[in-house]
Design a protein around this nucleic acid. Structure first.
Lengths: 142, 142
DNA sequence: TATTTATTTGCAACAATGTTGCAAATAAAT
DNA sequence: ATTTATTTGCAACATTGTTGCAAATAAATA
């Protein structure tokens, strides 16, 4: 049974990313978090510690590129990020789960076991990807 | 058969909004457009004409508040807006349709007649609203 | 382990986007 | 036509995201 630091190093190395303090720290925060995180969460959580804003942007983008995290759509200007399940890779994502945004606690969760239903599009439309975001009240807030 | 200007005045008046140049112009652009629009589209389309950036922000917010337009979720920082169907009001929205983003032309469309399927959430979760955004290739680009 | 090479970081500077208060302008009500 | 309420434009500011480049760090090699 490996500790978290080793797990994180493994993830980074298998994605061909150097193991650096910022990347380890950001992955740790993702693993500790129950829900999705956005850029400003990292600025807050890492405040005081010497992590540059720009480095956080670049780290999140690198994680996206490597298929370590994925984005969740929102109706505001924030961008929500969540860890991909272990089966995801840069080439082949299968985040085919529903996202849930709780109106009470504000948290956004991946419902990993809730499948996205098939959708019958009008004639002439080809679907490559389907995003579903449900909002409501989560089980912790009800 | 009413002309567009009269239709627009009616929409504004029935939403208890004064009929002003900016509001009429922005509603016209929505009605002319085949797809969703974002803030920067208005800055571009209205460039040269004397419409303030702040006024555009406030106009879009007012239209949201009154149920004239709705937002469409995205994975970037843009905010997409589209006209609500006539049946929508400030109190009662029924945008229960699927949104489609074409990867070719970049346009985002409301598929007004494509219903959102029921989703079986895990025990303890209550759904209030469901957003579905499909990306792929639209019928004009295929 | 020491050195070289490749990658990553932090900084500065900038661009784009969004917000607020307030006086002037305009629309609606009287 | 005048009063009242609403909306607008401006200025100023806050937040968010981007780029180039030199210094720092990690990985690869000897």
């Amino acid at each position: 049974m490996k500790n978290t630091k080793d797990q994180i190093s493994d993830i980074l190395r298998s994605s061909h990313l150097s193991v650096t303090d910022t990347r380890v720290k950001i992955l740790e925060l993702f693993m500790k978090s129950s829900g999705a995180l956005e850029h400003s969460d990292f600025e807050k959580k890492l405040a005081g510690q010497a992590f540059d804003r720009v480095t956080i942007y670049r780290t999140l983008q690198a994680f996206i590129d490597k298929g370590i995290i994925h984005k969740i759509p929102t109706t505001d200007t924030s961008v929500q990020y969540a860890l991909c399940r272990s089966e995801c890779s840069a080439e082949d994502h299968h985040d085919h789960h529903v996202h849930f945004k709780c109106e009470e606690c504000g948290n956004t969760l991946c419902l990993d076991d809730t499948d996205i239903p098939a959708i019958q599009l009008p004639k002439g439309y080809a679907a490559h990807n389907i995003e579903v975001v449900v909002s409501g009240v989560c089980k912790h807030c009800k």
